[in-house]
Design a protein around this nucleic acid. Structure first.
Lengths: 361, 361
DNA sequence: TTGTAGGCGTTATCAG
DNA sequence: CTGATAACGCCTACAA
């Protein structure tokens, strides 16, 4: 026997299928008694309508989807809440879809739009190098949010993000202001368009502006292990290598808080102090960064505001009122406990000596 | 114009729909030339088959679903990887579905089974108090994994979990062995069936066994803020209240690592040292616990093994070879930096004095 | 090797 | 108010 269908219910109640359908969907023109009776049978039977059939039939779903890349990115949680709330107020249903690292989000989007008859969608996170041909095939409005984009570059699609490059510069400016000159960076691939690249550029720009230059020996790219780049372990590992290289530095800029936490642990494991020996800074403003010991100095992205702008932009486009815009939101430098003034050269040398035995042991 | 369909492609290629279908699904009996031509047109057009229609049609999908409750639970990531891998090796497709805190996972399961013609499913996390009537309506095999269940209680459905009660006892035994007598607990609702309850019972049992008694003033239940209980913030808040109460204690058992991290921060903020003044322990064994400063002493659940057992059990049931079993896996007590010997009563008092000004200030 | 037709479960239209 | 019936887009016998 296959699953129970709406016809079984109809037969059981001695009514037509359309009547059952009306009962299920709260249609107005149906006898309350009939309705009650049908609902009773449905409850008894445990009948559940087949979603595929519903989707297939429906032409207008009044729903949007949120495609989330990077399940572990705690930063998105708050944004999702806000977006769902706003969409609901506009009478829309929100479909959440987590996209695995190996999946292509545009491909997923294409499928989902067909399957669920979406009115629009939001890409949360992920790379921003997309196959334009595929993207063009998306016939509904969409917004890239929190994805980042090359500074100044104009795109034909909507984009809400923090100016990664600028904010990184802000952070490096602060470190330089604290007397740091040898500043390391732990980042994601700098050679492919990504937030990693943008944040690296900001770092590099800021150094140059101050007459300094990015020392390749202080630039560490995490090696993708498995399919998730942004892990504590990766941050730990790169910081460890940095320390083991004996290259002197007084601060390390991690392009994600999650890296910063790993880096902190590596530094502590090497017997060094934060921030007295080495300052550590992150980027993102995730919750845990403010609970770590020491609390992580970072760039806090305005999650709620970004979520609101994203939804506003999307619905402007859905309502034909708006065109794709690029919106750059301001972020905030939160100076906390993991950073401070650079130590003098002399003591820096001493710290290196202390660390060495541990590192090579 | 509606979306392109398989018929449009057929017309464009001057062939029948079944030929297109065959091309798409890699059927053997089709002329390679025809096939290539069709694929070309599909690529040009950007045609994507409608999933709803496919699901509706299919009677056998050879797929299972993983229903994940608690998006933030990093502990699940590794388990999911393993499960997907094993299922794939068995020729099955895995569908991942994140269940929001407010959603009922059984309801979601019921829908999904119909929609996707699932062969079986796994519930990852969530409460274990389920509507048995609804659960019975699930006509495919399913396994609750990492959900926990009352000790010794036999269920009619399959279950893979760590013996939460026993493992908690183990942890408390260790603390008592370290000389701790006043041990606080930060837990989730103890009055509803949940891992929070089980772990609380283990705590309480262990104390009793040692002739101690659980002091209600040292039992803190997190207050659900929003819909996610397991947050760092909640751990922080309860620890803060505990400290503010001036009730003396030398250790705190947090029933989740995520609480432990919050608790650590609260203790450090109060000017106390870990573990010299207060020992902190967690439960779960999530990655970040081992990178926190101090590293968190905890119960490490065997993620991989649990995942394997879950899949084995599920497929035994799918293949009619097996019946629902309850499998309790052993977990490991990882003693790390956040716990140590209890301090003597005298110095404990002193610490209280130090902390007071900060707490009441 | 290819095309035609029927049906998957639901909703909407249109008569009764 | 209620009940047939035709789509929705795809797959799969079955026929050619």
């Amino acid at each position: 026997m296959g699953e129970t269908t709406i016809r079984d219910i109809a037969r059981l109640c001695g009514v037509g299928v359309s009547t059952v359908s009306r009962a299920i969907n709260n249609h107005p023109d149906i006898n309350p008694t009939t309705r009650r009776k049908i609902m009773e049978v449905i409850a008894e039977t445990g009948f559940v309508p087949n979603n595929s059939a519903i989707n297939l039939k429906k032409s207008d779903a009044r729903s949007i989807a949120l495609l989330i890349k990077g399940i572990t990115n705690q930063f998105f949680n708050r944004m999702i809440q806000v977006m769902e709330d706003r969409a609901q107020k506009l009478g829309y249903t929100t479909i959440l879809r987590h996209v695995e690292a190996r999946e292509d989000e545009v491909q997923v989007a294409l499928q989902l739009v067909k399957e669920k008859r979406l009115r629009g969608l939001v890409f949360l996170g992920g790379n921003f190098t997309h196959d334009e041909v595929m993207l063009r095939q998306l016939k509904v409005p969409f917004v890239f949010s929190t994805v980042g984009m090359p500074q100044g570059e104009q795109t034909w699609y909507a984009n809400v993000a923090v100016d990664d490059r600028l904010e990184s510069e802000k952070l490096i400016d602060y470190l330089i202001g604290q007397g740091h000159r040898r500043i390391a960076i732990i980042t994601d691939a700098v050679s492919v368009p990504s937030v990693g690249q943008l944040r690296y550029q900001g770092y590099s720009d800021a150094l140059r502006r101050h007459g300094l230059t990015a020392d390749p020996k202080l630039v560490r790219e995490v090696v993708p292990n498995g399919n998730e780049h942004y892990t504590i372990e990766n941050g730990y590992e790169e910081a460890r290598k940095l320390l083991a290289s004996d290259e002197p530095f007084t601060a390390v800029f991690c392009i994600a808080d999650i890296f910063a936490i790993g880096a902190c642990r590596a530094i502590l494991d090497a017997g060094l102090r934060i921030p007295e020996d080495i300052s550590v800074t992150g980027y993102d403003g995730i919750a845990i960064g403010n609970f770590y010991a020491p609390r992580i100095t970072t760039i806090v992205q305005p999650a709620e505001e970004m979520a609101e702008e994203t939804i506003r932009l999307l619905f402007d486009m859905i309502g034909k009122k708006g065109k794709p815009e690029t919106i750059l939101m301001p972020a905030e430098l939160a100076v906390r406990e993991s950073s401070g003034p650079a130590k003098s050269n002399a003591s820096q040398q001493a710290a290196g000596d202390v660390a060495s035995p541990l590192l090579h042991g």
